[in-house]
Computed example of a mutant assay.
Amino acid sequence: MKEFTAQITIGMTSYQLLMTLSPLKSAPSLVDQVCSRLARQLRDEVESGNGRLPPERLMAERLGVSRTVLREATKRLELQGLLEIRHGSGIRAVNRLHKPLSGSLSLLLPELSERLRQLNEARAAIEPEIAKQAALKAKTADVKQLRSIHERLVAAETHDEAVEADIDFHRTLARIASNEILKLMLESLADLGRESRRITISNVGRQRAIDHHTAILSAVAAHDAPAAAKAMKHHMDEAARDLAAKTKAKR
């Protein structure tokens, strides 16, 4: 009986120990550690304009890892849009975090017209908020830069120049808004947005974009957040209508 009681006690003790155990967290792999270390430094390299990284052999030595581990890490960072690897010219730090999403859009939505339609829906959801935040946070230098970009749109002599000035205007608003998530979302749509703008500017000209940007710029300069959001919403609504009309005409 004593032996049986002892077995129960031991069994209960084992059960109590089991209940106090928690899952072990696996240690990051060497590749994960290298990715983490490099990612922290790459943005500084891009911002400083010194995007070129040391040769693979030297980086591996400094990090204390094999070239195989470093190669796997840099390949992963390239897929994430933080590195550009060119055989023969080395590795360069870049800021293309939007590329993974941008590249997925054509796979998810093979038909261009549907991609453009959904693009306008996405922009209508996020760009008025970007304009609102930009109006709240814009400094004098920001407004000056925005006005300079707007003048490029006015003075553009070709469709391509107008398209790039248009994209830069919206990109600068996102930077002024100081929200990295909104900025990344907008940048992920930039390539598709370029196609959309080529269609609408070719169809209706750039004067409409100039008028809309003028209203947005004035609201941002006046720090009038509701007016900036309203002007941007009107801009998005008109762009959607122009694109829909062009698509319908083609059909």
Rank of each mutant, 00 (worst) to 15 (best):
D191H: 10
S188A: 15
G205K: 08
R197I: 03
D168W: 06
D168V: 00
F169C: 03
S178H: 07
A209V: 06
Q207E: 15
K183H: 13
H170S: 11
A227I: 02
F169Y: 15
A231T: 00
T214D: 12
V204Y: 10
R206S: 12
R171M: 11
A227R: 15
L186G: 07
A225P: 04
A227Q: 11
D211W: 07
S178E: 09
K230R: 09
R171N: 14
Q207G: 04
A219W: 07
G193H: 12
S202V: 02
G205H: 07
M232Y: 07
R175D: 12
A215R: 15
I167Y: 00
A177P: 05
I201N: 07
D168Q: 15
A219F: 09
E195D: 14
I167K: 00
I176N: 04
A225Q: 05
P226T: 08
V220L: 02
L182P: 03
K183D: 14
L189S: 09
A215I: 04
L186S: 12
T200S: 13
A177K: 00
K183R: 15
R175F: 10
K233H: 10
A231K: 00
E180C: 03
D166Q: 09
R198M: 10
H212R: 13
T172L: 12
I210E: 02
A209Q: 12
R197S: 13
L192F: 05
A190N: 11
K233R: 13
D168P: 01
K233E: 09
I201F: 05
T200R: 14
S196F: 04
S196N: 11
K230C: 01
D191V: 12
N179A: 08
H223D: 01
T172V: 04
R194P: 00
G193P: 07
E195T: 14
M185E: 13
L173D: 01
D168S: 14
A225N: 03
R175Q: 10
D168F: 06
D211T: 11
K230V: 02
L192C: 04
H170T: 10
D224M: 01
E187P: 00
L186A: 12
R194W: 04
R171I: 05
N203M: 09
L186R: 13
A219Q: 05
I181M: 07
V204F: 11
A229D: 00
V220D: 01
D166W: 09
A209M: 10
M232Q: 13
I201P: 05
L182Q: 08
L192V: 10
K230Y: 01
D168G: 03
L173N: 05
H213L: 08
R206E: 05
E187A: 10
E180M: 08
L173F: 06
R206G: 01
I181A: 10
D168I: 05
N179C: 08
A221S: 14
A227Y: 02
K233F: 06
L173Y: 06
R208V: 13
R208P: 00
S218N: 12
N203V: 06
A225G: 04
E195G: 01
I201L: 15
I201Y: 05
H212T: 02
I167V: 11
I167P: 00
